[in-house]
Design a protein around this nucleic acid. Structure first.
Lengths: 191, 191
DNA sequence: GAAGATAACCCTAACGGTTAGGGTTTAACA
DNA sequence: TGTTAAACCCTAACCGTTAGGGTTATCTTC
């Protein structure tokens, strides 16, 4: 996003990118479990320790792109036009995120994730973090006078909608249907 | 549950119990991360391979008791009195499960789980499995004519209620509040 | 009761993700 | 220009987990 100015930062970003690209390529070529961290490091021509200096775990190599997920979610709430109701704004953003995750080129990656228990678990734990962040954003919104429980539940429901839709036959329709439920649930908590 | 008849089965069950007890004791004494599988095995006086013959992973040692969770959930749906509405039955069972998980003696275990990312992740992935099973039970119920999406979403919402309540200040009230939302969401899917 | 069959267990060695420790280069900057 | 610190490297290890192959105790069948 932000252009790195110094040579050092540029080189660092290049190294990171090379590792991520190499890893994803090898994973897709040979399968996630059949590729070791040592393979990735060798192919990217860096030391194993360098891989872990850029990525917290082997699984993180796969989800490299999804860093802004959390930010997009919370901003959909905090940056929405004044007086716009919450649920439609959330609905729209989740819809967009689902489209991004079910786009044409993402299919092999999704299949890989679904095929590896470790990756599924990792994705799920990311979702938990996202739900926490979203719940905090909801609780902080001055226009929404709801209990902490209502905020936390709604945040998890929204993440559920995303998770279900990414695996559904008709992702768009799934988001819409689950958000009809979320809308009703949210209304039921009106003070 | 079922009394093992032969000596072999009794000895096997005893070994399993000894491993689980030893593990939980050591974990609580020294902290989950500070205790290795080799420590548990040595203290329980068995081989490391024996530990993994009884438990699929280190994390599974902690959740040894919660095997019937899934069965209780699905049975709350399938075995409920004819014509009893779904949501109250689910509500009641989740309430009971939460009480079980927040009971007096469970506090140190909960603190340990919350303190270890590995355990939190494992618990979350168990929850996913439970949600799958519950969704299947809902989809199979002839009295509930709802879409697969509605069943899956409701199942996840119910699991969310459990997860939120286990970590809440007032677990009972949290279950009640979230189930008011779930009730509304479920009604919104009526055909 | 003796003779297999087999379940439960043991040991050793290894694999793969991950980290600690400590060294070298190179961009950044005073 | 010299100093600092970030990025990187190597080696060796830790830890969860599994494979391979052996020993003992229980079960079963004759």
């Amino acid at each position: 996003m932000t252009e790195p100015s110094g040579r050092r930062e540029r080189k660092k970003a290049a190294t990171r990118q090379k590792i991520a690209d190499t890893a994803l390529r090898l994973f897709l070529e040979r399968g996630y479990d059949a590729v070791g961290i040592r393979d990735v490091a060798a192919e990217a021509d860096v030391a194993v320790t360098t891989v872990f200096a850029h990525f917290a775990s082997k699984e993180a190599l796969v989800f490299e792109r999804d860093q802004d997920f959390e930010q997009r979610l919370t901003r959909a709430v905090t940056d929405r036009p004044a007086h716009e109701p919450l649920i439609p704004a959330l609905h729209r953003e989740i819809q967009a995120l689902v489209r991004h995750c079910t786009a044409e080129g993402s299919t092999p990656v999704r299949r890989m994730i679904e095929g590896s228990p470790a990756l599924r678990e990792y994705e799920e734990s990311m979702s938990l973090r996202h739900a926490h962040a979203l719940a905090a954003a909801l609780a902080a919104d001055p226009h929404l006078c709801r209990s902490a429980t209502a905020c936390r539940a709604t945040a998890r429901f929204a993440i559920d909608a995303y998770a279900l839709a990414c695996r559904a036959d008709d992702p768009g329709a799934t988001v819409d249907e689950v958000f009809r439920m979320i809308e009703a649930a949210w209304e039921a908590t009106a003070p």
